[in-house]
Design a protein around this nucleic acid. Structure first.
Length: 425
RNA sequence: GGAGGCAUACCCAAGUGGUUGAAGGGACCGGUCUUGAAAACCGGAAGCGGGGUACCACUCCGGCGGGAGUUCGAAUCUCUCUGCCUCCGCCA
């Protein structure tokens, strides 16, 4: 949530910043609501104070043997008069809340405005492989290697799914293990969260209310639960409604979970196979930091995600996203995109973002500084990494003339020393 | 699934209708002692969300798992939801 004070004090700044996020924000209604709230609060609270004052005089009244009945009548009258005001105050507060909670996070000042088209690459790593033979795309490779079964996936589940089989499952699992072992080495704490989360968690992460329709709900379960679209949703809720102490920051977590997404209507014919589906595997990193230390954490997480791809030897690009292409809850996002030879484009395998205090404010995640003052934490997240995109890139970039796929050395320990996946028959 | 119990602040915890205007303790900060630390002792401030003010001081409102209610007055009584614990049953 954007700091309501900032909206009140610098409405123009907020308006302009949100414009960079392609969000048309008119502060006027909120400003007048703020004002209305202020005057209502004053009235309601001073009336309350008077009621409290009268009520607290009752015991001494009784002690003196006087009849408190007139006080009762007076307080009842005050309360009755106050009732309409109190209700209006509540309505106004709800209205303010509703208007603010749908707003996306403010982008960092250094971001350019606009959407995808204004993203700009800040680094390219590796060589785009040149094949001296007829290279295959990952769908053809997966089929000839017999490691992905699309047909049976359609049978047992439906479209937008796939099954890792045999060495495919081994490779997928090896990737996850490679990522996990790397995060463990870096001192991140491993978390395996539940995949079904309550709506409060969706609210804190910023998925709700705006993206309520993009997740899967469990039918017939009350209170409502949904399948997490990313482990970030679980991890940034770990410390909801908590006040952390300074010495436990920064908190560094990572989790492995499948990610469940509806992604309704966003298929494109070129996105074949494992590029986009209802469920994919991802290892996700999350950090909680002090409110002036999140830039350090951001740099660290970008570097970590990059290092994973470098370890695999895959060609990738680092992209700084324009404000409008950053996620709803995020102040800044860098994407890491891996080269997919068959498509001739880079595809996102990691998105590292700084939410600043946006999520912490929604979930009341705070810490106490050395003077005992309470601040909102900053939260950050980054994929490290999403395997469903790494897997096809790896197949394509590591394919050999004989139709086999050379397994990157870092994965071999997790695959019983296997060096390559050979085509079946 | 059955039966009971519990929920108070960062943590522990007192409190069953009115000097509770949430006690007390720990953690925290300062000091004594110590080579240093721990322990012990002495002292201190504060405490969660807001408003009055830009800060402090001061002051007001709200806040005792969430929501609703009874009452002049609710942490305390009622209803409801959620979570946790114990025992029994079932089960990977």
């Amino acid at each position: 949530m954007i700091d309501p004070k900032l909206i009140e004090e610098k409405p123009e700044y907020v308006k302009e910043a949100l414009k960079k996020k392609l969000w048309d924000f008119d502060p006027e209604p909120l400003l007048s609501l703020f004002q209305r709230r202020r005057s209502l609060r004053k009235e309601v609270e001073s009336n309350k104070a008077e009621q409290n004052r009268l009520t607290s005089s009752v015991p001494s009244f009784k002690k003196e043997g006087k009849d408190p009945a007139p006080i009762f009548a007076k307080v009842r009258e005050l309360a009755a008069n106050n009732k309409a005001k109190e209700e209006e105050l509540k309505t106004v507060e709800n209205e303010i809340q509703a208007r603010i909670e749908v707003l996306p996070n403010l982008p960092d000042d250094d971001l350019v405005g606009g959407g995808k088209e204004n993203n700009h690459p800040i680094k390219e790593w590796g060589e785009k492989p040149q094949f001296s033979f007829q290279a295959k795309d990952h769908v053809a490779l997966a089929e000839s290697l017999g490691i992905i079964d699309y047909k049976r996936a359609a049978k047992i589940s439906g479209s937008g799914t796939w099954i890792y089989v045999g060495e495919g499952a081994e490779l997928e699992w090896a990737l996850l293990n490679y990522f996990i072992s790397s995060h463990l080495k870096d001192g991140y704490q491993f978390v395996l969260p539940p995949h079904l989360l309550n709506v409060e968690s969706g609210y804190t992460s910023g998925q709700f209310p705006k993206f309520r329709d993009e997740v899967f709900y469990l039918e017939g379960v009350e209170p409502k639960k949904f399948l997490l679209p990313t482990a970030e949703t679980a991890l940034v809720n770990l410390h909801r409604n908590e006040i952390l102490s300074l010495d436990e920051l920064p908190k560094k977590y990572f989790a492995y979970t499948p990610c469940y997404r509806k992604e309704a209507g966003s298929y494109r014919t070129e996105e074949r196979g494992m590029i986009r589906g209802y469920q994919f595997n991802k290892v996700e990193m999350v950090q909680y930091t002090e409110d002036d230390k999140s830039d350090i954490a951001f740099a660290e997480m970008v570097e970590k995600a990059e290092r994973l791809l470098q370890g695999l030897g895959l060609t990738y690009r680092l992209d700084k996203l324009a404000a409008g292409d950053c996620s709803h809850s995020m102040a800044r996002t860098y994407d890491i995109e891996v080269w997919i030879p068959s498509m001739g484009i880079y595809k996102e395998v990691s998105s590292v973002s700084n939410a600043r205090d946006y999520q912490a404010r929604r979930g009341m995640v705070r810490y106490k500084d050395k003077d005992g003052k309470v601040h909102y934490c900053h939260t950050l997240n980054g994929s490290g990494l999403a395997t469903s995109r790494v897997f096809p890139a790896l197949l394509e970039q590591c394919q050999q003339e004989d139709g086999s796929v050379l397994i990157p050395e870092v994965l071999r320990p997790f695959m019983g020393g296997k060096e390559r996946i050979l085509p079946k028959k």
